[in-house]
Design a protein around this nucleic acid. Sequence first.
DNA 1: CTCCTCCTCAACCCTTTGGTTGAGACGGAT
DNA 2: ATCCGTCTCAACCAAAGGGTTGAGGAGGAG
Lengths: 206, 206
Amino acid sequence: MAITVLLVDDHPVVRTGLRALFDNSDDVQVVGEAASGEEAIALAEHLHPDVVLCDLRLGDGIDGVETTAALRAQQPAPAVIILTTFDRDVEILRAIEAGAAGYLLKDVSPATIVSSLKEAARGGMVLAPEMAKRVVDGMRHPRPRLTEREMEVLRLLGTGASNREIARELFVTEATVKTHLVHLFSKLNVESRAKAVSVARETGLL
Amino acid sequence: MAITVLLVDDHPVVRTGLRALFDNSDDVQVVGEAASGEEAIALAEHLHPDVVLCDLRLGDGIDGVETTAALRAQQPAPAVIILTTFDRDVEILRAIEAGAAGYLLKDVSPATIVSSLKEAARGGMVLAPEMAKRVVDGMRHPRPRLTEREMEVLRLLGTGASNREIARELFVTEATVKTHLVHLFSKLNVESRAKAVSVARETGLL
DNA sequence: CTCCTCCTCAACCCTTTGGTTGAGACGGAT
DNA sequence: ATCCGTCTCAACCAAAGGGTTGAGGAGGAG
């Protein structure tokens, strides 16, 4: 019995490519395509694919991570493999946490995609060695847990907002903003707003 | 006589998708595939395709813009269409300046790709309305021309460096850094280092 | 109830930044 | 020879940012 797979990617070209790729394989059958996370969730509800091959960026709607979480909550839950061009640490970690069975970059060979898919259908995990390394690194160096408010401040910080502007935006006083900033600096291990934005970008917090 | 096209994309999946797409079209014939800019330039030299369909990001080597410039310098010069996921203003402007006949986003329909390709083969330009708008906007609001030194300062600014750190890095005094910064702020039309980084990122200067 | 986290705010101090003016040196263009 | 753009630097001032201490209220967990 062939493995059934649902393709999720907002780029028609990529979907076409994947479909063409699996058409040459006897044991993989594409049972559906979705251009958004919402569509994917709805389709999976009916199609019950063995595996969902999902991009991380999905246009305007929900992203691949949220889609993965929703899919994994279904009964029966399909295996989800993330197939994307981006390889930032956070993305990978978030995807794994959400229940993804694998994380592939789009520059891998078609053969790898097919074999990964089979592995996932068997219930296995699919992580390229470099990916696996990042996962354990991510576990070892846990990303600081920022509170919701701190994240809001960080986001505004990224736009170049001054303390006064941040205060106005969040309906608090500058004193409060400064307090959040001090906590933020401490958690990110930096000593200036500029560096905070810089490291937040690097680590993917922003 | 069918239009000959060379596909350039570092993702095998995308190339497969495009190839599958054109296989259904009688008047378009894929004559080659390249996974890098260097490979594309070498192949075009021999194949003389009518059109080159090229991604902007091409892995580690030269990018799509440089590839476009090199291709347009060949005799006869193929038409070049940029097909990418990114739509930052600078990228588009740079691609057009380099001689691209079109700029498409990967989320367009397959039909659009085919028709755009034909248009380019006829010597025409292919710009989606929103793209065209950005181009004229880009012409109207010319990106500020920063000097080399100012760019270095801007780059360091992006890493969150303080004036002191920038000064050390560039082997000048803080006074000089401040002078550069004032010029930078004026050219970018901002009033703080944070905002400077923010708009530089938005406009693609950084 | 009490401990703890998070969010809020204030007063104080010192450092860094941003803005201004002015100026010397160098190289290329006219 | 002269102008112009670029890079360099200095001195000065006002504003913003960063660091500290302390503290009150709201809400959840034990």
